[in-house]
Amino acid sequence: MIGSLSVLGAGLAFGLGAIGPGIGVGFVAGKAIEGMARQPEMAGRIQTTMFIGMALAEAIALLGFVLAFVLFGVK
């Protein structure tokens, strides 16, 4: 019982935990593209900042992923 519940928990952890970061990353990329379209000469700087923003947002999703694997291994 514990085993199957933990697997369910793992699925939920990753699935629900990826909603927020998904929206967040899309938002960051969209705003970055908008900024680059408004001012093409700042494109390099904007791209750099976009990568940093994406990495910070992805980290939360990956926290969920790791939690899923922890729960997956519980017997």
Partner: peptide
């Protein structure tokens, strides 16, 4: 977060 980000991406 630094550590988990790198580890999780690779793993």
């Amino acid at each position: 977060t630094l550590g988990v980000r790198l580890y999780a991406n690779m793993y």
